[in-house]
Design a binder for these strands. Structure first.
Length: 259
DNA sequence: ATGGTCGGTCTCCGA
């Protein structure tokens, strides 16, 4: 089974690039971030035509996540637990009924800039809530995967120019520490196990010729529970997508698991 | 040294 994550930066602008990639990469399940659409306006048809079930958790203009799956889904949940007042659509999860079930959590972690400030406080609070959710899932001992746009550069090796990020919410020590707290609960980051770097990136800014200069960062991650890590076969990054027509600023990341 | 680009949208905000 192949699972993927792709921050598409607007579903309406990405229908063509996304359908072309899906036809070529053929993931069984893909989680999307930044759909920037309400559920009612999400263009389901082109994806259903490719054999995908479509589950969205959208909001107007910003954020928004989705799961596309060729396999049946159950226990679909929208929103990260822990704050009833949080209206930002950044978390969706479901159990994929593969040969053995696996829970898939698709996440769009807050950017947090400018830091310090209320947006950074929200990022850190959101990460604390995610830590709680991961603790609860680990206690269940089920196989699960948390994948998406984490908006955290884990280490200096994960940026072409780490010195340019030292005051940025994506790289501040507190952000990286919060990410380590989650990972150190017992998760395995699948992409790094196969592609340790340096020079392995998942995002290149639209500005200042970042792609042409390979001025990238690694911020899209795939975290596996111990039971899921046992089933990891391969992982990768579809870097070529960034060089195609009308690309997102992120590229897809994927893992292949034993069924 | 600093400006540069996207997407979505109550013409500027978020990234």
């Amino acid at each position: 089974m192949k699972l993927a994550s792709f921050n598409i930066n607007g579903i309406k602008a990405r229908i063509e690039a996304l359908t072309l990639w899906l036809a070529e990469a053929a993931p069984d399940v893909v989680v999307l971030q930044e759909i920037k659409s309400v559920d009612e306006n999400f263009p389901r048809e082109p994806f259903e035509a490719l054999g995908y079930r479509v589950e969205t958790h959208g909001q107007k203009a910003f954020n928004g996540v989705a799961i596309l799956s060729k396999l049946p889904l159950s226990d679909i949940r929208r929103g990260l637990p822990g704050d009833e007042s949080d209206e930002q659509a950044r978390w969706i999860e479901a159990v994929v009924d593969a040969g053995r079930p696996i829970r898939v959590c698709g996440l769009y972690l807050p950017n947090g800039n400018p830091a310090p400030g209320p947006k950074y406080d929200y990022k850190l609070a959101w990460m604390a809530r995610m830590e709680t959710r991961v603790r609860d899932l680990l206690a269940s001992e089920e196989a699960f995967v948390c994948l998406g746009d984490y908006n955290v550069i884990p280490q200096a090796v994960d940026a072409a120019k780490p010195e340019a990020w030292v005051t940025d919410a994506l790289y501040l020590p507190q952000s990286r520490e919060a990410l380590r707290r989650i990972e150190n609960l017992g998760l395995t980051e699948a992409i790094r196990t196969r592609l340790p770097g340096p020079g392995v990136y998942t995002f290149w800014d639209f500005q200042a010729g970042a792609w042409e200069r390979n001025n990238g960062i690694r911020i899209d991650h795939v975290m596996l529970s111990p039971q899921a890590a046992d089933r990891l076969e391969d992982a990768g990054i579809d870097k070529a997508e960034r060089g195609k027509d009308k690309p997102s600023d992120h590229v897809p990341v994927w893992v292949r698991m034993a069924a």
